[in-house]
Design a protein around this nucleic acid. Sequence first.
RNA 1: GCGACUGUAGCUCAGUUGGUUAGAGCGCCGGUUUGUGGUACCGGAGGUCGAGGGUUCGAACCCCUUCAGUCGCCCCA
Length: 418
Amino acid sequence: MSKDSKPARIETPQAIRGTQDIFGAPAEAFVRVVETFERVRKLYRFRRVEMPVFEKTTVFSRSLGETTDVVSKEMYSFEDRGGESLTLRPEFTAGLARAYITNGWQQYAPVKLATHGPLFRYERPQKGRYRQFHQIDAEIIGAAEPTVDVELLCMADQLLKELGIADGVTLTLNTLGDGESREAWRAALIEYFRAVRAELSEDSQERLEKNPLRILDSKDPRDKVFVADAPMIDDFLSAQAQDFFAAVTSGLDAAGVAWQRNAALVRGLDYYRHTAFEFVTDRLGAQGTVLGGGRYDGLMESLGGAPTPAVGWAAGVERLAMLVADGGGVAEAPLDVVIAVEDDTLINLAIKASATLRRAGLSADMVASGSPRKRFDKAAKIPASVLLGMSLRDGVVTFNYRGADVAAVQALLDPLKA
RNA sequence: GCGACUGUAGCUCAGUUGGUUAGAGCGCCGGUUUGUGGUACCGGAGGUCGAGGGUUCGAACCCCUUCAGUCGCCCCA
């Protein structure tokens, strides 16, 4: 096309902020995470669920609490043509709870569920945080026993080990107690921090009103001074709550799952009870949590269902994939055979050879473009077990094999020359 | 929403106190070695220096605005 007849240049649309196009080694790491999750989840007999990526907004707003920042600013909500407010799912749990209720999954209770896929949050992107991101998710719904908390954590622990990233990751564990324990603790915390209010950071002064438990994991040194001596949940636990937590920790010990107590680990939402946990690392910058979850016995009621105990966790696939990639990574699988087509008259023969190899279960690719004399060198740069140069010499089709163990390939392809 | 840093070729990046026609490596295209060869050599295409405005005789470089990216804060279901 001449310069004169070139059409006016169209501006290429940009990708949406916070979305990613994953390709090559990072994509391999991504599927490694998902495939490992699928394998491990079957070992624990978690049942696969496929869920819609959007729900009525109320599914999330009721479960999260109408007034929180999370609901008001950080969800992708829109109206459909009928004027109904819909939201791209920002988490799995609420949708699974809705499905449990609307589909009558009580009949399967206690039921172990596993799913994975994209989630959407309207946030400023940074390392390990995207607007469209992906999680793997496991929930056990309809069981109140600490045994299932242990099983769920055990599965998470095995997953991280099988991904080969357990070394730099530690399980931090806490209990929020039952409803009364939690309320008593919360009241004590408010009283304690109110007394020193003026000396807290600006952010924490606001947290005192909106979300006092969050002061406990403030990063500001002005807050940390007081956090160290803040009331601990342990002083407010009922006997039953103590027993529950003891059963979880002793179960983890029995399963050989290492854990660390973190008395400052909290959840912002009111429906969380008892077990709360995060697997954390210092290798991902500010985003230290690799996998997190807890027991949410109060959630079902907030969606209009019968009181139903449940516990679950979710983990960011991108964050796990980054750890997998940092720890040696995952290369794209090398080819079995690469064919350099050094003469254009041999292209159909090469196509036939490729098809033969692939039908025999061998991966094959061919280099058939550009200067014929450079194709061999180009093919030689592609990692493959066998390199086959196809050329025409004095009118004779010549196959030249290089690499380790060419015999099997030769046996398949040499007959094609005739 | 706030802050810091960064935008130069398809990719990774140079580019001096502002001064001729903006460079390198890799990649891509073509050629040389008439060859059993992952090496080497020669040549070529490809850039409105993110965009817009300003200062200046002159801007990739200085100033303003804007867009985008990265990292952090807030938030973290």
